[in-house]
Structure formats: C-alpha cells, structure tokens
Deep mutational scan, measured.
Amino acid sequence: MKATFQVPSITCNHCVDKIEKFVGEIEGVSFIDVSVEKKSVVVEFDAPATQDLIKEALLDAGQEVV
C-alpha cells in the first residue's frame, strides 16, 4: 500500500531525518520519501503498518499532518 501525507511543518533536513527515523521504526514500512519542497511524505507499507500508525509517528516526530 502507498500513502501520501501533507506535512506543512517540514522545513529542513533535520525534519527529514527525524521523520525517516520515526516512520522507519514502524514494522511493515518499506519505503519513505520526504520532500521539503512539496512538504509531503510518501510511504509504502504493508501490514502491520497502517496509515494511522504512520500519522501517529509523524506527530511523535513533532510534525503537523493535514
């Protein structure tokens, strides 16, 4: 499964690193693409990962998800 999250609070590479760390810890996540320019995060994943778990990880990383 693939999901795109709009994350307007992404401003720098530190944000990218933190997002990759938090989302990458979720079992089932196979790909993460964070774009500072587009302020988006694209995640490819399989169970047990879910969109809700990914959104929670983004929030835990200090990001706003819309």
Rank of each mutant, 00 (worst) to 15 (best):
Q6R: 13
D17P: 06
V29A: 03
V7Q: 01
G62A: 06
E56F: 10
A3W: 13
M1H: 13
F45Y: 14
T4N: 06
E25G: 11
F45R: 00
D17S: 12
V66Q: 10
D60Y: 12
E25S: 14
D17E: 14
V41R: 00
S9T: 12
L53C: 06
S30H: 13
E44F: 15
S35I: 06
I10P: 00
F5P: 00
V34Q: 01
T11V: 11
L53V: 07
Q63E: 05
Q63W: 15
A47G: 06
V34R: 00
K18P: 03
L53S: 08
A57S: 04
T11D: 07
F45C: 03
V43D: 03
A3F: 09
I19P: 02
V7Y: 04
S30W: 13
D17H: 11
V66A: 10
E27A: 12
E44W: 15
S35E: 05
A57V: 06
K55G: 04
I54G: 02
V66T: 10
N13Y: 12
D33C: 15
V65A: 06
V29F: 01
E56K: 15
N13M: 14
C15L: 07
S30R: 14
L53P: 03
V41E: 02
V34I: 09
Q63C: 15
V16Y: 05
E27C: 06
D46N: 13
D60W: 11
H14G: 11
E44V: 14
V42N: 06
M1R: 10
S30N: 09
I54F: 02
V42K: 08
V66M: 09
F22A: 13
E37T: 11
E56Q: 15
D52N: 09
V41Y: 02
D60C: 11
S40N: 08
E44G: 11
V34P: 02
A57C: 04
C12D: 13
F5I: 04
A49N: 02
F5C: 04
I10R: 00
I54Y: 01
E44Y: 15
E56P: 00
D60A: 15
T11S: 11
D33A: 10
K2T: 11
K38V: 06
T50V: 02
D17I: 14
T11E: 08
P48Q: 03
E25L: 13
A47M: 10
V43T: 00
F5E: 04
S40I: 14
I26P: 01
E37Y: 09
E44T: 14
K2V: 12
L59Q: 09
D33P: 01
C15I: 10
T11F: 15
P48D: 02
V41P: 03
C15T: 08
F31M: 10
D46I: 13
G28L: 01
K2Y: 09
K21D: 04
V29N: 03
K18D: 06
A57Y: 02
S40Q: 14
A3L: 12
P48K: 00
F31S: 10
V16T: 06
D17W: 13
Q63S: 05
K39T: 06
Q51E: 14
Q63F: 15
I26H: 01
E25V: 11
I32C: 04
E44L: 14
V66W: 08
L58R: 00
K38T: 12
E27R: 11
S40W: 12
M1W: 11
E56A: 14
D60F: 13
I54R: 00
C15V: 08
D52M: 12
A3T: 08
I54A: 00
F22T: 06
T50R: 04
E56Y: 10
K38H: 14
A57P: 00
M1V: 08
Q63R: 06
C15K: 06
S35A: 04
Q6H: 14
P8E: 07
Q6A: 10
T4Y: 14
E64D: 09
H14T: 15
V16H: 04
C15Y: 07
D52R: 11
L53K: 13
L58A: 01
F22P: 01
L59C: 06
H14R: 14
S9H: 07
S9L: 06
I54K: 02
A3C: 12
L53I: 10
I19N: 01
A47H: 13
D46E: 11
L58D: 01
V42G: 04
H14V: 15
V42I: 11
K18H: 06
D52Q: 12
V41A: 03
P48V: 02
F45P: 01
E37W: 09
E44C: 15
I54P: 01
T50E: 02
D46M: 14
E20W: 12
D52T: 08
V29G: 02
P48W: 03
E37M: 07
S35T: 04
G28N: 02
V36W: 08
P8T: 09
V7K: 00
N13D: 10
V65T: 05
E37G: 06
V42M: 11
G28C: 04
I32A: 02
P8Y: 08
C12N: 13
K39Y: 06
A61D: 02
E20M: 15
E37L: 11
F22R: 07
G28M: 00
C12I: 07
S9A: 05
V43Y: 01
N13L: 12
T50C: 04
T4R: 09
F31D: 05
G62P: 02
E64Y: 13
M1A: 07
V23F: 02
L58H: 01
H14K: 15
E44P: 01
C15S: 11
V42P: 00
V34M: 04
E56T: 13
E27P: 12
I54Q: 00
V41C: 04
D33Y: 15
I54W: 02
I32M: 05
S35H: 05
A47E: 11
G24L: 09
I54E: 00
F5G: 00
I19S: 01
Q63L: 15
A47W: 14
A47C: 09
L58M: 06
V16P: 05
L59K: 11
F5Q: 01
A57R: 06
F31N: 07
E64H: 10
T4C: 10
C15W: 10
Q63M: 15
K2F: 08
D33F: 14
K2C: 11
A61C: 14
K18Y: 06
V29H: 03
E64Q: 13
T4Q: 10
V65F: 07
V43N: 01
S35N: 11
E64T: 13
K39G: 09
K18I: 12
V43G: 00
A61T: 04
G28K: 02
K39C: 13
N13H: 13
V34H: 00
V66S: 09
V29T: 03
S9I: 05
V66N: 07
K39I: 05
K38D: 11
D33I: 11
T50A: 01
P48L: 02
E37A: 12
I19E: 00
D46Y: 14
M1N: 13
I26M: 05
L59S: 07
Q6D: 11
V7D: 00
A61I: 06
V7W: 06
V29W: 02
L58I: 13
D33V: 10
V66G: 06
L59W: 09
E20P: 01
D52S: 11
V29S: 01
Q6C: 14
D33S: 12
E44D: 06
L58K: 00
V16F: 05
Q51H: 14
N13E: 11
E56D: 10
T50Y: 03
K21E: 06
D46P: 01
K38Y: 13
F31T: 11
A49H: 02
A61M: 07
C12L: 08
K38W: 12
V43R: 00
M1G: 09
E25T: 09
V41D: 04
L53M: 11
A3Y: 11
Q63A: 08
K21G: 05
V41T: 01
E44K: 12
S30I: 12
G62Y: 10
K55D: 02
E25Q: 14
K39M: 08
A61R: 00
V29Q: 02
F5N: 01
E25I: 11
L53N: 05
V42W: 08
K18T: 09
V16C: 07
C12S: 14
I26E: 00
C15D: 15
D52F: 11
V34L: 03
V23T: 03
S9E: 05
V34Y: 04
V23G: 03
G24V: 05
G28H: 01
K18E: 09
I10C: 13
A3Q: 06
C12K: 07
T11Y: 15
V23K: 03
N13K: 14
D52C: 12
S40H: 10
C12Q: 08
P8N: 08
F45D: 01
V7C: 06
D46C: 11
D60K: 15
E20A: 12
K2H: 10
G28P: 00
Q63V: 13
V66K: 09
C15F: 07
V42F: 12
A3S: 08
K18F: 06
A3N: 05
F22H: 10
S30F: 12
K21T: 07
A49R: 00
Q51I: 15
K21A: 08
Q63G: 05
V7M: 06
E37R: 09
K18C: 06
V42A: 07
D17F: 13
I54V: 04
V42S: 09
V23N: 02
I26W: 02
T4F: 15
D52K: 13
D60V: 09
V34W: 04
P48M: 04
S35P: 00
Q6W: 15
E37K: 09
E37I: 11
L59D: 05
A57K: 06
F45I: 01
V42T: 13
G28W: 04
